[in-house]
Design a protein around this nucleic acid. Structure first.
Lengths: 259, 259
DNA sequence: CGCAGTATTGAAGTAGGTCAAATGTAGTGG
DNA sequence: CCACTACATTTGACCTACTTCAATACTGCG
């Protein structure tokens, strides 16, 4: 846990090619790997950094998970995303001097600390710079998809989208099973999707009752990904209570890609 | 209209310090102003650029107005913002190689064309670079506020927010009167705010009926900015039909700042 | 004038919010 | 280990803000 050695999350880390902690990469000689970040342990619920505070470092996530929370000038609060091991917290686009959101640990969490000076130094490398910017662009794209989802999709679609995304991230991290554990509360999910916690809970139960998933508290298992994708794409009126007996051969979805 | 001379919008333009078309700035000697952009006329409804297409130039808006439209992978479309003269269209953060949204002219529109090479050249100047990045950050902040609005505010709040923002932009451009003309349709407004056009129309009527604004079609006049700010801040249950006779002295709003 | 696009207004339906109660889970200290 | 508390989740019943459907009016343009 507090062992500074390479963790599995390192293999997905943005800094893996320049970090001493990361396992050697086959393709590169790794002649120079000057980055040896310190580590930081954050207990569940605590902030890794806070919105508005100056950016002094970025934080590759090693263990645990976090949520990003944005607080608007009028005091409205909204979750804008979740992060898993391998993600880098605190990367601000456009050379922002201050964090645009807060990051709160969803559980006891460990992350690396990469000072901005080190980051800036490495940004001199074109390849590295490009990959950092690609990550930033991906984040921006995600937020836009969230905006469209919240702005024009139904509750069931939004939740299906989130589940598919969480599953995709889980698999990208090597999870071969379909079981995942939700680190975030129903309230967090509701905030992200622009719903209430009751709606999220009901929807999860409904998904389960029609055989799309199984849920018990925070243990979740995706059973029918295609079905979820259909819900996401809204090809499916999503049976209110009991599925209309006529199951029309679960049609394929042209674009099931979540997020 | 097609006269290439300086327009009033130039005085707000990001490029004013480096552009030959812009009026001389008092503070700087303008020794070097190597930018002399070509101009582009876009008829109402046409695209200035399209989402996914490579970024070849950015487009300072001279006359007219435009909307940004994002199309999600699944085909959902949403307006993400409106632009007025002085704004720069097509500025993509993170060195994105392609436009992340489309820009459609809301009326016959004229804009400058600044090739990306020229932009990149001027980015060498620290002051200029900083101001460009500040604009990008401001845009990102706007989108986040929109996300929170759509995700957790009521319809009336969202609309009040938009009206206050449009008004603020109008005044920033020198408009001293409280009258403004909406270049966008009710449908566009509805899309931006995550509502239906009928709701927008009804809400405008309701705002008018309680004396916050006056509207007729696309002519709009803000009558009670403080009242709108109160609606935005939700200090006000927003009378359903006829105000509940007890008017509690229209309280001050701590943070009436829209967007 | 008459048509096409845009806006307003009404009536009815519903998705999701709100309020409230019951159950489950985890943490704490005895 | 267990009792007790605090909090998260589920579920139900009701309600309303918003959508949907539909009809009517306004504006601009050939």
């Amino acid at each position: 846990m507090s062992d500074p050695a390479a963790s599995p999350s390192c293999s997905l880390c943005l800094f893996r090619h320049v970090c001493r902690d990361a396992p050697a990469t086959g393709t590169r000689p790794d002649a120079e790997k000057p980055l040896q970040p310190t580590h930081l342990i954050v207990p569940a619920g605590d902030a890794i950094f806070r919105q508005g505070r100056p950016v002094t470092a970025v934080f590759p996530l090693r263990q645990g998970s976090a949520k990003q929370v944005y607080e608007s000038p009028l005091g409205w609060r909204q979750v804008t995303g979740f992060s898993l091991p391998g993600d880098v917290l605190g990367l601000e686009p456009n050379e922002a001097p201050a964090h645009s959101v807060s990051a709160l640990a969803l559980q006891d969490t460990e992350c690396c600390v990469v000072p901005v000076e080190a980051l800036r130094t490495h940004m001199a490398d074109a390849g590295f710079r490009d990959s950092v910017r690609a990550v930033m662009r991906h984040q921006a794209e995600r937020e836009r998809i969230l905006l469209v989802a919240v702005g024009s999709m139904k509750a069931a679609q939004r939740l299906a989208m989130l589940l598919l995304d969480l599953d995709a991230e889980h698999r990208r991290r090597g999870g071969t099973d379909s079981a995942l554990t939700l680190a975030m509360s129903r309230t967090d999910i509701a905030s992200l999707l622009g719903l209430t916690l009751e709606t999220v809970s009901r929807l999860l139960s409904r998904f389960a009752s029609v055989g799309l998933i199984s849920v018990r508290q925070r243990r979740l298992r995706l059973i029918d990904r295609d079905g979820l994708a259909a819900v996401y794409a809204d090809l499916d009126p999503m049976p209110r209570q009991i599925p209309a007996a006529i199951g029309p051969l679960a049609g394929n979805v042209d674009e099931p890609r979540p997020f």
